[in-house]
Amino acid sequence: MAHEVNLHYRPALQWGELDPNRRQSTPVGMWAWIWQRISAIAIVFLLGLHITLTYKPLVQFLLLTVVIFHAVLGLRVILLDFNLVNVKYQKALIAGLAVLGVVMVAIIWTGIY
């Protein structure tokens, strides 16, 4: 009986390829990473706006929010990198830092402006 011995393997499926369920099961840590990258780009954008348009409350508020958002996510990585927070609490850490970020935005915005 003749059967082909050389079969073609399908090239590896990539992350999320042909997978209708991937996005909804993306874990929170990955979102933290993605949003930190997005916030980095937003900071560059808002910083430009801030410098060209002085004293625009909306721009300043957005910039403040995004910078703090980016900073707390950076803080997350630092805390985990140096084992200042045990990795098993990484989800709680994200929630905690999000709360911290909101508090900081509120304090800075109401206190300084």
């Binding site: 079969l7 590896a12 499926l13 999320g16 390829e17």
Partner: peptide, 12 residues
């Protein structure tokens, strides 16, 4: 939905 692992060639 059952799907093979990512990043490895699919045999079958």
């Amino acid at each position: 939905t059952l799907r093979p692992l990512n990043h490895f060639p699919v045999v079958k």
